Structures are given as structure tokens and as C-alpha cells.
Amino acid sequence: MLTAERRQFILEILRRDKKVLSSELSAVLKVSEDTIRRDLRELAESGFLQRVHGGALLPSPALASYADRQKQAPKEKEAIARAAAKLVCTGQVVILDGGTTTLQVARHLPLDLQATIVTNSPPIAIALAEHPQIEVVMLGGQLYKKALVNVGATTVEALRMIRADLCMLGVCSVHPEFGISVANLDEAHVKRAMIAGAAEVVGLATEEKLDTAAPYVVQSIHALTYLVTAPTVSDRMLTSYKALGLTIIRDESA
């Protein structure tokens, strides 16, 4: 089998099974594990997969620009936002992470809701500026332009002073075995601080982000209290998440 054919086969297996193992590919393709590792490395460099110990997973779709991500799965994000917004109660302090899905959550908060929203996202702060009852706390830091969020030591230090009731986490990638991950190291530190500062953590994930991985690990899946996803996601796809004791929320009215 030619190299190109072998790599195409690897990608087909990855799309079908959501992961590949080096040892299994070596046996099926009758080549050494060194050859498979080289294939995976070069496919990862081209953005086709994310390498993990022993194999590879699908890559995160959140590697695209903020503008491009706003165009991805708009109906899914609105459904997720409707379900997530219902988790916010009057009087709560809520950390609202950056992202295009969390922006939709901000837009779906009821106009009579009295709460404090802490965010590192300029778009979210602007979206809530006209809300009559919500107090907005904007976290400072260095603007990570690709994701339009503030990151860095200043952001992390500010989060250490906050004890929130709820954290709405914008999920770049989530996997039952490899946990929550992102494409930027500074953003990983900020998300970790958000999780540490909240009593409950809500992960917001469209279907394309499930069972994927990015280079920088935030926390294990056990850091989440709830996983809010789209109603179109199949029960089969969510089985492994439920098995870990994670509460799954979907807006079935969508």
C-alpha cells in the first residue's frame, strides 16, 4: 500500500471510530508502529487529527477564527443557549467564558434576570451592556485575538478572587477519556481558573466538539457538572459521557 493510500485509510478509520490506535493500525496495515507514528505525526501537522498517547483523535473544530466559528452550527448553538440560560438563577454570580456559544447564552438570558456575570469576553460584555438587570464584571488581560477573550496572568489572578455559583464553559474539545482541551496554553490556564472558582461547571458543546482533542489539557471530564449539547446529538454518542456520571442537558423543544 502506498503512503498516501495508507494515510487515507487511517483518516477513514478515524472518521468512523472517532479514534485510532497505533498498535491496531500497525497490525491491520502490516507496517511498523514507527511508520504509523510517522503517518500520524504528518497528518497532525496538516491539521487532520490530534495525536494522543497511543494513537489519535479527531481535531478540534475550534481552531478556526472567531468570525468563522460564528457561522458554524448556528441552530445547534441557539438550542444549547436556550437550555443553558435556564440554569442561571436570580442572585447568582456566573462566570461566562468566551466563545460563540456562550455569546448566545448571554443573548438568551431573560430580561428580568438579576445576576452578576463575570466574563473575559469583550463580545459578551458588549452584548450584556444593555441588559437592564445584569451587572457585568469584565476581566482584564491580554486579548487573544483569535478567540476574542482576555487571557494571561492578570485574568487568572482576577479569577482567583471570585467564588461563583456557576461557570458556563465554552468547550473547544471534550472527550470522555482525554477530558477538556483547547488550542491555546494561556486560554487553558484561564479556563482552569474558571473551573476552580465555581461551585458548578456547565460545559457547552456542539456535536462537532464531542470526542475531539486539542493540544492543551484544561481538566478531566469530571470537572463538569453538566454537559449541555444540541438535541440532535444521538443518545449513542452520549453514552460514554453518561457512564461517567455526567448530567446531560438538551433543549428538546428545539
Rank of each mutant, 00 (worst) to 15 (best):
R6Y: 09
L227Y: 01
V217G: 07
S60R: 03
T212L: 05
D251T: 10
S173T: 11
V201W: 01
D165Q: 14
A106E: 00
L111T: 12
L109H: 02
R192N: 06
A64R: 14
E24V: 15
L111Q: 12
I249N: 01
R38E: 09
V233R: 06
V190C: 09
L29V: 11
T212W: 07
E42R: 15
A106C: 08
L21H: 12
T206N: 09
E24R: 15
A62V: 04
H222Q: 14
K86V: 05
K30Q: 15
R6A: 10
S121V: 08
A56V: 06
I117S: 03
R107E: 05
F9T: 07
L2T: 13
A115D: 03
A243W: 09
P61V: 05
I134A: 05
K30H: 13
E5R: 14
E5C: 08
S253W: 09
G203I: 01
M194P: 02
I80P: 02
S181V: 10
L159V: 04
H175Y: 06
P74D: 00
L14V: 06
A27H: 14
L204W: 00
V201Y: 00
R6C: 09
P110V: 04
H131R: 13
N120S: 10
V174T: 10
Y66R: 12
S181M: 08
A67S: 14
R38M: 10
